[in-house]
Every structure is written in structure tokens, then in C-alpha cells.
């Protein structure tokens, strides 16, 4: 089965003063349509580079990314993005922030239609009644909810999430996990989530890809063997605990890769 997102043999390096710094090396990731892929890995292993490659904001040195079988060479409107920093436009209301992508992707769409679409999403994430507020009047969690709405308002095929919950407190984060699951049930989209949080990757993901240390390749793929209808208690289930233990072990291997190699060599 070919995936909706196919990352095929992607190798990428950044030029630095001390020569090219390789960040990704022959990376392979495949995500089937409407599935949720979580990507975890040690710090600085090139996870954010990956999001920019999939979004078409960056072209890899070697290999490529395919969406729906088409090579990604430039940004495309069928992609939605959300980052750790919600980057809402402070001068717009929450409603107008959510509408922003429609102004670019669907310039002919009427105001009425845009508002209806945005309000529908805001209601789903529990922001009804806050649409006229400015971002500075909202809490961090609420801003991130608005940012999620903005990322999917134009019904993208692919949602790219770069540690969107990283800056939130634990309870808010778990709330937002649930919100994201609900959104996907309402209108499915294929998701690539970059995260540092192993519990998050298991709770949200259908598959978890563990990247090795830099330069990163796919070190391990975990199929999350949990029912689609999950709530937070499932993380205390034996299956979850076992999966988390495997992931933790894999991260340890990824972190210690260079030292392990040295040990073998000596």
C-alpha cells in the first residue's frame, strides 16, 4: 500500500561555516491516507526540517516527498501547518485568524461562507463565544486551539504539526490531544506530528516513527495497537505501558548511537 505522504530516501544537509551539516540521511516514512503518523527522536535530529520538506518550503538535497503520488516541489494549498508557537496575528480577531488561509486558498469564497466554516471549527474546539477576542486576550491553550482551527479551515489533505503542544501545561495538553482526536473523527485528514512527548505519540498516533540521532534516518517504526476510540485512561493500560517502554528504549539507542559506535570500534 502506498501512502498519501511518501518520504522517500530524503537526505538533507545545512551549509554551515564548518562545512555542510547533514541532518537527514536516507529517511523513509510512509503515511497512509487519513492515518496519523507521530515522529519522535532526540533533540536536534532534524525533525523540524522534515516538516518544512513535507510543506514544500524546503527542497531536499536527495530523495523527495510525494503527496498523493505527486512530487512536492513548492508549497501547496492542500497542506495545513501548526507550530509550537501558535503565531496568531495579534491585530486580527480569533475569527479572522482562522479565516486567514481561506483568503489565500479560496479568494472567491464569500465572507458569509468563510465565517460559517470558521465558526463550525471554533465550536468543535470549544472556542465558541471567543471569536471576537484578540489573541492576547486568550490563554496559551486557547490560542493553540485557534491555531489548530486555522491549520484545517481550508480542509487540507495533510496536516503538519510541529510540536504544537510543547509549550502547554500537562492538563491543557491532554485536553488538546482529545480535541485533536475529535476533530479527526469529524473530518479526517492525514497527519504528520513531530513531538518530544512519547505519551502524546502513542495516544494520538496510528504509527510512531523513531528517528535516529543526527543525521537522522528511520530507526524504528511502532504500530500503535490501540482502538481508534481512545480516551486518556488508555495510556495506563498494559499495552500502552509496553509500547512506551519500547519507545523509550529506542530513544535511548538513538541518543547513544555515536557512543555505541565508538564502543564497537574500540
Amino acid at each position: 500500500m502506498t501512502g498519501l505522504i511518501e518520504i522517500e530516501g530524503v537526505t538533507h544537509a545545512y551549509p554551515t561555516a564548518a562545512g555542510p551539516l547533514p541532518v537527514l540521511e536516507n529517511l523513509q516514512i510512509s503515511v497512509p491516507e487519513n492515518e496519523f503518523a507521530a515522529v519522535v527522536g532526540p533533540s536536534g535530529c532534524g525533525k523540524s526540517t522534515l516538516t518544512r520538506l513535507v510543506a514544500g518550503l524546503l527542497l531536499p538535497d536527495e530523495g523527495g516527498v510525494r503527496l498523493h503520488g505527486e512530487w512536492v516541489r513548492s508549497p501547496r494549498s492542500t497542506v495545513g501547518m501548526a507550530f509550537q508557537n501558535p503565531v496568531l496575528l495579534e491585530w486580527r480577531t480569533i475569527l479572522d485568524n482562522v479565516i486567514l488561509p481561506l483568503e489565500i486558498v479560496a479568494p472567491r469564497m464569500g465572507r458569509r461562507e468563510r465565517v460559517d466554516r470558521a465558526m463550525q471549527l471554533l465550536e468543535m474546539v470549544g472556542l465558541k463565544g471567543f471569536e471576537a477576542k484578540r489573541p492576547s486576550e486568550l490563554s496559551g491553550g486557547m490560542r493553540q486551539r485557534a491555531s489548530l482551527c486555522r491549520a484545517i479551515v481550508h480542509k487540507p489533505e495533510v496536516l503538519i504539526l510541529d510540536e504544537p503542544f510543547g509549550a502547554l501545561d500537562a492538563f491543557t495538553r491532554e485536553d488538546l490531544w482529545q480535541t485533536l482526536r475529535n476533530l479527526r473523527q469529524e473530518e479526517p485528514f492525514t497527519t504528520l506530528l513531530i513531538t518530544h512527548d512519547l505519551r502524546e505519540s502513542v495516544f494520538l498516533g496510528d504509527q510512531v516513527f523513531v528517528l535516529s540521532g543526527r543525521p537522522a534516518h528511520t530507526q524504528y517504526v511502532l504500530d500503535v495497537d490501540l482502538p481508534d476510540d481512545r480516551d486518556i485512561e488508555i495510556l495506563y493500560d498494559t499495552r500502552s505501558v509496553e509500547m512506551l517502554a519500547i519507545l523509550r528504549e529506542q530513544i535511548r539507542i538513538a541518543q547513544g548511537r555515536s557512543t555505541a559506535e565508538q564502543a564497537v570500534n574500540s
Binding site: 514544500g56 518550503l57 513548492s74 508549497p75 501547496r76 494549498s77 501547518m81 496575528l89 486567514l100
Partner: peptide, 22 residues
Amino acid sequence: EPEYRDILRSLGASRVTLFTKI
């Protein structure tokens, strides 16, 4: 911040749009 740029550029917005909207 680069993220502001990315939000619009990832949708295929032009430089002019980027300037006037953000």
C-alpha cells in the same frame, strides 16, 4: 518570526500577500 512567513508561504501565498497580510 519565520513561522509567520511559513504559515502563509506553505499555502502558496505570494511575497506581496505576505507583505500586506503580515
